[in-house]
Amino acid sequence: MSIQHFRVALIPFFAAFCLPVFAHPETLVKVKDAEDQLGARVGYIELDLNSGKILESFRPEERFPMMSTFKVLLCGAVLSRVDAGQEQLGRRIHYSQNDLVEYSPVTEKHLTDGMTVRELCSAAITMSDNTAANLLLTTIGGPKELTAFLHNMGDHVTRLDRWEPELNEAIPNDERDTTMPAAMATTLRKLLTGELLTLASRQQLIDWMEADKVAGPLLRSALPAGWFIADKSGAGERGSRGIIAALGPDGKPSRIVVIYTTGSQATMDERNRQIAEIGASLIKHW
């Protein structure tokens, strides 16, 4: 067993022997301040990774656009098919120029040779490549099948209805392509620590998230040296922004954090800054 596999296998073990965790309302004060600064709703939840206990939450059962955070769930569904012998990570998928959609920095470079399922998941999570996500959605049967996968996990809230990039439209009061912070946090925890996926697939999923290259201005910008984070960000229309993450000190994750916002007129930089400040408060009061 590799060191990384050992780390993920012992996530519940280490967490069980940690000192009790206590909620700190100071972080919620910052979440509410972010709402004021952005002029928009902000949803927040913080779960203990081992027990699933909610440590703090704000608007945990209000719907927010998922945006690209759905790509972690998508690759979880792909990995479940791999575990069941219905898919192979090494299978190569070929596609054409007509398949390319807006923001496809990886797939646009491989029109000639195609990409493997493993490479597509890596591109979808680490670079948020939209064509990679659409190609992977095709392998599982489309958005409705991802929703069905989530329902089978016990998540009857999260739903995907459309493809990239239309799913980022974020129309107010439109339930399409949305989740709730509580539902997303619980589902992410199941994917990373539950028995739904094999140990190898859980490790692969967290490795992809740990290698995320496009979430630097968010929670990662607030992390002290030595902290662990595996995350996936999302951005959408109407001032929408979000991030889902597993993080913790001492090089291992111990909490799940989900943050979503929508309806702001603020710039992307300002949305990023507010999420980073929430992260800084979380870490300060850990």
Rank of each mutant, 00 (worst) to 15 (best):
P25Q: 15
P25M: 03
P25G: 07
E26R: 03
E26M: 10
E26T: 01
L28R: 07
L28S: 05
V29S: 06
V29G: 08
K30T: 15
V31Y: 01
K32Q: 06
K32A: 07
D33G: 01
A34E: 14
A34Q: 12
E35S: 06
D36Y: 01
Q37Y: 10
Q37M: 09
Q37L: 11
Q37I: 10
L38Y: 05
G39I: 01
G39M: 14
G39R: 14
A40K: 03
A40P: 02
A40R: 01
A40E: 05
I45H: 04
E46A: 15
E46K: 05
L47A: 01
D48C: 00
D48P: 00
D48R: 00
L49E: 11
L49H: 15
N50Y: 08
N50F: 08
N50A: 07
G52Y: 00
G52H: 00
K53D: 08
K53T: 02
I54T: 09
I54A: 07
I54D: 04
L55I: 07
E56C: 00
S57F: 11
F58I: 13
P60H: 04
E61K: 13
E62N: 08
P65R: 12
P65T: 03
M66A: 10
M67V: 10
S68G: 09
T69R: 05
T69E: 03
T69P: 05
F70G: 05
K71Y: 05
K71S: 06
K71R: 01
L74M: 14
L74Y: 14
A77D: 11
A77Q: 09
A77W: 09
A77K: 12
A77R: 10
L79I: 01
R81H: 00
R81T: 00
V82P: 03
V82W: 10
V82Y: 00
G85T: 01
G85N: 04
Q86I: 10
Q86E: 08
E87F: 13
E87V: 15
Q88F: 03
L89F: 04
L89Q: 00
L89E: 00
G90Y: 13
G90E: 13
G90N: 14
G90A: 12
R91P: 07
R91G: 08
R92H: 12
R92N: 09
I93P: 15
H94C: 12
H94I: 11
S96L: 08
S96P: 06
S96Y: 01
Q97H: 08
Q97I: 08
N98W: 05
N98S: 02
D99N: 15
L100G: 14
L100E: 15
S104D: 15
P105Y: 14
T107A: 07
T107N: 00
K109V: 12
K109H: 01
H110D: 14
L111M: 08
L111A: 06
T112G: 10
T112W: 03
G114Q: 05
M115D: 04
M115G: 00
V117W: 04
V117S: 00
E119L: 08
E119I: 15
C121P: 09
C121L: 05
C121R: 09
A123E: 01
A123F: 00
A123H: 01
A124C: 10
I125R: 14
T126Y: 00
T126G: 04
S128A: 02
S128K: 01
S128H: 03
S128P: 03
D129K: 05
N130K: 01
N130M: 02
N130V: 05
A133V: 01
N134K: 07
N134I: 07
L135W: 09
L136F: 01
L137H: 07
L137Y: 05
L137I: 12
I140T: 14
I140A: 14
G142K: 08
P143F: 06
P143L: 04
K144M: 10
E145A: 09
T147Q: 15
A148G: 11
A148L: 08
F149W: 14
L150T: 03
H151N: 14
N152D: 14
N152R: 09
M153C: 13
M153P: 10
G154E: 07
D155Y: 14
H156L: 03
V157D: 02
V157C: 15
V157P: 07
T158V: 07
L160Q: 15
R162I: 02
R162T: 01
R162S: 09
W163H: 14
W163S: 13
P165W: 04
E166Q: 04
N168V: 06
N168A: 12
N168W: 07
E169K: 02
I171P: 09
P172H: 15
P172E: 07
N173K: 08
D174Q: 07
E175N: 02
R176K: 01
D177Q: 05
T178W: 05
T179Q: 06
M180C: 00
M180E: 07
M180R: 02
M180W: 03
P181K: 12
A182F: 10
T187L: 03
T187A: 04
L188C: 11
L188F: 01
R189Q: 07
K190A: 14
K190F: 14
L191G: 06
L191K: 12
L191C: 15
L191R: 07
T193D: 12
T193P: 04
T193A: 06
G194W: 10
G194D: 05
T198E: 07
L199Q: 01
A200G: 08
S201M: 13
S201R: 10
S201I: 10
R202H: 14
L205Q: 09
L205D: 14
I206K: 14
D207T: 01
E210W: 12
A211P: 05
D212K: 01
K213H: 03
K213Y: 04
G216H: 08
L218V: 06
L219I: 15
L219K: 05
L219S: 11
R220Y: 07
S221A: 04
A222H: 15
A222S: 15
A222Y: 15
L223H: 10
P224H: 00
P224A: 07
A225W: 00
W227L: 04
F228Q: 14
I229G: 02
I229R: 02
I229P: 01
D231C: 06
D231T: 08
S233Q: 12
S233M: 13
G234S: 08
G234Q: 01
G234H: 02
G236I: 14
G236W: 09
R238F: 06
R238V: 07
G239V: 08
S240V: 11
R241K: 14
G242Q: 06
A245M: 07
A245D: 11
A246I: 11
L247W: 05
L247T: 02
G248D: 05
G248T: 08
G248A: 04
G251L: 01
G251N: 09
P253H: 11
P253K: 09
P253W: 05
P253D: 14
S254M: 15
S254C: 15
I256G: 15
V258P: 07
V258K: 12
Y260C: 00
Y260W: 01
T261Q: 10
T261Y: 08
T261M: 07
T261V: 08
T261A: 04
T262W: 11
T262E: 09
G263T: 03
S264P: 06
S264T: 05
Q265T: 11
Q265F: 10
Q265D: 10
A266R: 15
T267A: 12
D269W: 10
D269G: 05
R271F: 15
R271G: 10
N272Y: 12
N272R: 11
N272M: 14
N272T: 10
R273T: 14
A276W: 03
E277G: 14
E277P: 12
I278K: 14
G279D: 13
G279C: 13
A280R: 07
S281R: 08
S281Y: 10
K284Y: 05
K284R: 07
W286E: 07
W286R: 09
